[in-house]
């Protein structure tokens, strides 16, 4: 199996477009996943009976093969980017919800009691005490969800989207390995870069952890 380097040179524009489209789909899904999972995690954290239900439901969603999720969404949103993003968002929810609930659980009760004793209102406690303290665990979830999404975007190639995944179908249909290798390498690179960016973001967001480290 040899790489046709001239193909890469001839297709840099296409590769750039696909890479941007790939990253866009993955990041939109993670962003929506965070927006949805934060309130759900607060509910799961506060109301015990709902906790098992929400976590169990997200686990079941996770076992459905990704290709099936994309196809099942076709009657709803058709062969569009929306289908890709909804499918990916469903997947990110599993990781994001579990980590956010675990993060909220990890906040020491004494800290919450101290906030209450100082007269801090529940919503303010949540936003200024609980979320910041839960942030490392939440961010660990965001990192996993991001890397996973970047890898899963390519499955949407079966419904005509898929960013870099289109290189896989292209290579498969023409029996030509170069696009496939390029697609795999670019996907891995995107994952590494995005993960490093999130590590940097967490460093910026949690200044109080630096002194200890």
């Amino acid at each position: 199996m040899t790489i046709d380097w001239s193909w890469i040179g001839d297709h840099t524009d296409d590769l750039t477009t696909l890479t941007i489209s790939h990253l866009q789909a993955a990041l939109t899904a993670v962003f929506l996943g965070v927006l949805i999972s934060l309130p759900l995690a607060v509910i799961a954290h506060r109301i015990r009976p709902l906790r098992g239900f929400l976590l169990g439901l997200s686990n079941v969603l996770f076992t459905i093969p990704s290709i099936a999720i994309f196809v099942l969404l076709l009657p709803v949103s058709g062969l569009t980017r929306t289908t890709t993003v909804i499918g990916l968002t469903i997947y990110t929810l599993v990781v994001l919800l579990r980590n956010t609930v675990e993060g909220l659980d990890s906040v020491p009760v004494k800290v919450k009691e101290a906030a209450k004793a100082m007269g801090t209102r529940p919503l303010r406690t949540l936003l200024t005490v609980e979320f910041p303290l839960a942030l490392p665990v939440i961010m660990a979830g965001v990192r996993i969800a991001t890397v996973m999404s970047i890898s899963l975007v390519s499955v949407a190639t079966y419904i005509g989207d898929g960013g870099l995944g289109q290189l896989f179908t292209d290579g498969f249909q023409r029996n030509f390995p170069t696009p496939v290798i390029v697609g795999v390498v670019l996907t891995l690179l995107l994952a590494v870069v995005a993960d490093a960016a999130l590590v940097a973001l967490q460093y910026v967001l949690t200044p109080w952890r630096r002194r200890r480290a």
């Binding site: 890397v147 390519s154 499955v155 896989f168 498969f172 390995p177 496939v180 697609g183 795999v184 891995l188």
Partner: peptide
């Protein structure tokens, strides 16, 4: 991070 579809196609080719 490894895209499964890509891996299958690659080993297939």
């Amino acid at each position: 991070a490894l895209p499964t579809v890509g891996l299958v196609v690659l080993v297939f080719l």
